[in-house]
Write a protein that binds this DNA or RNA. Structure first.
Lengths: 233, 233
DNA sequence: CGCGGATAAAAAGTCAGACTTATACGTCAC
DNA sequence: GTGACGTATAAGTCTGACTTTTTATCCGCG
C-alpha cells in the first residue's frame, strides 16, 4: 500500500512529507537539515536526499545560509501521486477529494469520447467485463467487489483514450473512488442508475459512439459531483 | 528560463533528465551510480541525490545489487513540470504538444465555466485587460506581444476557476502556447476569430454566464486542436 | 543430468568528518 | 541614512570506509 517503503530515506519521507502537506509547518517556516537529521536519527547524507525529493515536489526550497523553507501550497506539485496520497491521508482530505472530483468531471467525458474512437477489441471486452462485475456486486453490501470493478472500469477508459496524460490519471481516479467508498458515506448499495450508466457506456464504446460515450460519462461524473454537494452547472 | 540551475546537483539533472526522457536509454537499461558520478565528474553523494530525484519522478528505479534501472515511459510522472519541459525540449515534442493540447481541450472549458462563477472583480478586470492586449497585438506581426497576453489570459481563467488542480496547469498551458508560437507554424498574424472569442469569453465571465463561457472556451480549444490536425468530435 | 543450498561478489545504502561556498546580517565609517 | 566590509551560518561538496541486500555462481547431492 505505502509506496516509498524501501530504504531509510523512504521512511523519513513518509513522515516528513505528510507533515508538510498537512500544514504542520506554515509557509515560510524554516527547517534545518542538521536538526532534521538529528530528529529522525539519520545521517545528513540521507536527510539531504529527502530534502532534494521534497524540493523536486516544490514542497520546500533549500537556500544557502537560510535553510529549508516550506513553500505555500500554491507552489506544490499537486499532480504528484505521492503528494496526492499524502494529502488524501491528511486533514484536508474532503477538500482534496472535491478538487479531484471536479478534475474527473472535466477529464473523463473527453477521455471516454476518445476511447470510443481508439479502444482495441481487447479493451472493449475488458470494459464489458468490468461493467458486468459492477452489476454482479451492486446488491447485498458487496461494496469491495463493486469498488474493484469500478476502479478497473475507469482505468480502462482512461487508458483506452490513447492519451498518456489521461492514462496517468488512472491511479488518481482509483484513489478517489476508493476514498469515497471507504471514508465517506456509502453504507448502502450503489445507485442503480449509476450502474446502468456504466453498462451503457461500455456499450457505447463498443459501438464506437463517441458522442454518446461522452454524454454518458458526463452523467456519471455529475452524479459524483452531486454526492459531494458540488453545484452542477 | 531553466529551472534547476542552482547547484552542482541541478546541472547534472539538467543533462541526465532530458537524456532519459528523450529515450536515450531504452526501458530496462541499467545505469550505475559510480559510473555516472565519474562521467559527470561529481561525487557519489551528489549523484545519489540526482538519482533520488529521478526516482521520485518515476523515470528510474534504484535497486540494490542491480543498479539504476530506466523505467518505461508509461511509468513517468508526466505531470511533473520538469518532466514536461524536458520532453518539450526533446525529440517527441510534437507528440507531447498534441497530448497537452487534448488535455487543454478537456480542462479549460470546465475551468472557464467555474471562473464565470468564482472570478473576483479584480480577475475580471485582468481578463479584459489581457483580451485588449491580444486585440492590440493581433496585427502587424507582433507575435511576442500577442503571446504574452494570451498566456496571461489563460492563466487567469485557470486560477479564477478556484480549483487548485486547474490552477496548477497554468504553466503547462503557457508552455504549450509558447511552443506553438515559437517552434511551429505561426508566421502570420493570429486568427481574428480566435481573438474575438477571447474578447467574448472575458465578457461572459464578467457577466457570470457560465454556460456561454464554457461554450466559447470549447470553441477556442477546438481551434487549437485543428491547428495540430487532431480530429474534432 | 538436474536441483538446492552454501558462498561470493557486486552495487546500492549508510555513516562520519572535514572542507568549501554563498549569503544574510550586523558593524563601522562616511 | 547609506554604503562598503567582515563575519557567522547553514547548505553544498568530497572522500573513504563500512553495511546490507540481492543476485549469480559453484559445488555436492540426489
Amino acid at each position: 500500500m505505502s509506496t516509498t517503503g524501501r530504504g531509510l530515506h523512504g521512511r523519513v519521507l513518509d513522515t516528513l512529507g505528510p507533515e508538510i502537506t498537512a500544514g504542520a509547518y506554515p509557509p515560510g517556516s524554516v527547517l534545518r537539515t542538521d536538526e532534521l537529521a538529528q530528529r529522525f536519527d539519520v545521517s545528513r547524507s540521507v536527510m539531504r536526499e529527502v530534502v532534494r525529493v521534497l524540493e523536486s515536489m516544490h514542497l520546500v526550497e533549500s537556500r544557502r545560509r537560510v535553510g529549508v523553507t516550506v513553500l505555500p501550497a500554491r507552489e506544490w506539485n499537486v499532480y504528484d501521486p505521492q503528494v496526492i496520497r499524502w494529502r488524501l491521508a491528511g486533514a484536508d482530505r474532503p477538500r482534496q477529494l472535491r478538487s479531484l472530483t471536479v478534475l474527473r468531471s472535466a477529464i473523463e467525458p473527453v477521455a471516454a469520447g476518445l476511447a470510443a474512437r481508439n479502444a482495441t477489441a481487447e479493451q472493449c471486452a475488458e470494459l464489458t467485463e468490468c461493467a458486468l462485475g459492477m452489476v454482479a456486486n451492486s446488491r447485498g453490501h458487496r461494496l469491495e467487489g463493486y469498488l474493484f470493478h469500478d476502479m478497473a472500469f475507469h482505468r480502462v477508459i482512461l487508458t483506452a483514450s490513447g492519451n498518456e496524460m489521461f492514462a496517468r490519471l488512472g491511479d488518481v481516479v482509483a484513489e478517489v473512488l476508493a476514498g469515497r467508498t471507504h471514508h465517506d458515506v456509502m453504507f448502502e448499495d450503489p445507485d442503480p442508475a449509476a450502474v446502468t450508466l456504466h453498462v451503457q457506456l461500455a456499450e457505447a464504446v463498443r459501438e464506437r459512439d463517441a458522442a454518446r460515450a461522452e454524454r454518458l460519462t458526463r452523467e456519471i461524473t455529475e452524479g459524483a459531483l452531486q454526492e459531494l454537494d458540488i453545484l452542477a452547472p
